[in-house]
Simulated assay, not measured.
Amino acid sequence: MDTLRAMRTFVRTLELGSLSAAARELGTTQPTVSKLLAQLEQHLSVRLFQRSTRGLSPTDQGRQFYLDAKLVLDGFDAAVGTVQGMTGQVSGLLRINAPVGLGQLRINAIVGRFLAAHPAVEIELVLDDRYIDMVAEGVDIAFRLGGPLPPDVTGRHLATVPRFLAASPAYLQQRGEPEQPADLTGHDFVRFAWTPGTTIDLHRGDQALQVPVSSRYRVNNALAIREALVLDSGIAICPDWLIHDLLSSGALVQVLPGWMARSQDLYVLAPSRHYQPLRVKAFIDFAVDQFSQIGGFHVAAPAQGVQTPPSTTV
């Protein structure tokens, strides 16, 4: 029996809660996972799972073995990482999670450049606006815009992103350009669907306003908001990273320059553990450098740990 493989299979099966989920992640079949777990139980002479029609649940011995197995696997990964670090070799599979818009517009290109620089690395980029459980879903690195951030992660603040009003020149020519925040009331406002209320908060220096807006179109996807503005659908609050290229090309323009919405914070996170694989450290360092070269991000100085920011939306 391949003991390390069996232990990894057991750990991920417990964390994911099912044989099928573990099989999908590990690139094998459900019968193979079941066989490995049975061999491990036979080797240990203990039952690790209670099996029922409702699924799997760990026994007391299983819960204890999970904690000890995690330490063994972390120690093994640390030893591998030390050897790889001595040679500078970066290899293995990275599972990265990011919001859909940020992932498609910005992180996708970063991943491509990282793969070109490290031929022994594989990357699975999972784009989802949902805040996932990194441990349960086997994610090595996650990018987060705003918060709140989960307590069981480590990471760093990557950048601060300005957010402001934008629209297409054609829309403003047709409907007129607002000269003051109160003028927004008479305009079509494209709004992120999860943003509550019928007002927006704006500030200019020390002056802060809450402005009523009419949102006949609400959408839960940042890329759809970007496209809606290009299609002359109205005015929206956008983070700089989302429309930086469109502003540069003139496809969109800033509305009420000087009036800003609350800025967005970008974080890169990894699960809390004693050891981080070399590929995780290498990608985070690479991403920090890459974001410093992308328009729309005000990259922060290196920070110690993560502070939970207020929740923000696109």
Results as ranks from 00 to 15, higher is better:
237 I>Y: 03
249 S>F: 07
9 T>P: 02
136 A>S: 13
234 G>R: 05
258 G>K: 07
173 Q>D: 15
209 L>Y: 12
225 I>H: 09
231 L>A: 13
45 S>R: 14
56 L>W: 04
133 D>T: 03
146 G>T: 08
61 Q>M: 10
98 A>G: 08
89 Q>Y: 04
59 T>Y: 14
136 A>N: 08
159 A>D: 03
207 Q>G: 04
151 P>Y: 11
281 K>N: 11
150 P>K: 07
27 G>R: 05
59 T>V: 09
172 L>R: 12
264 Q>E: 12
272 S>N: 09
302 P>E: 04
262 R>Y: 05
71 L>G: 00
58 P>K: 12
269 L>T: 11
98 A>W: 05
164 F>I: 06
138 G>D: 09
223 L>N: 15
296 G>A: 03
166 A>F: 08
137 E>Q: 06
245 D>I: 00
222 A>K: 12
314 V>G: 12
137 E>W: 02
236 A>W: 03
212 P>A: 07
77 D>L: 06
149 L>N: 10
298 H>I: 07
115 L>Y: 07
303 A>F: 00
195 T>S: 14
135 V>A: 13
255 V>E: 10
37 L>I: 14
94 L>K: 05
301 A>G: 02
298 H>P: 01
220 N>D: 15
98 A>Y: 09
109 A>M: 01
180 Q>N: 13
4 L>D: 04
240 D>Y: 06
181 P>R: 10
313 T>K: 08
314 V>Q: 07
142 A>I: 10
191 R>Y: 15
118 H>P: 05
14 L>H: 02
121 V>Y: 07
143 F>I: 07
281 K>P: 00
105 L>V: 13
205 G>C: 14
16 L>P: 01
80 V>C: 09
183 D>E: 13
262 R>D: 13
148 P>G: 05
198 T>N: 12
52 S>E: 05
311 S>D: 06
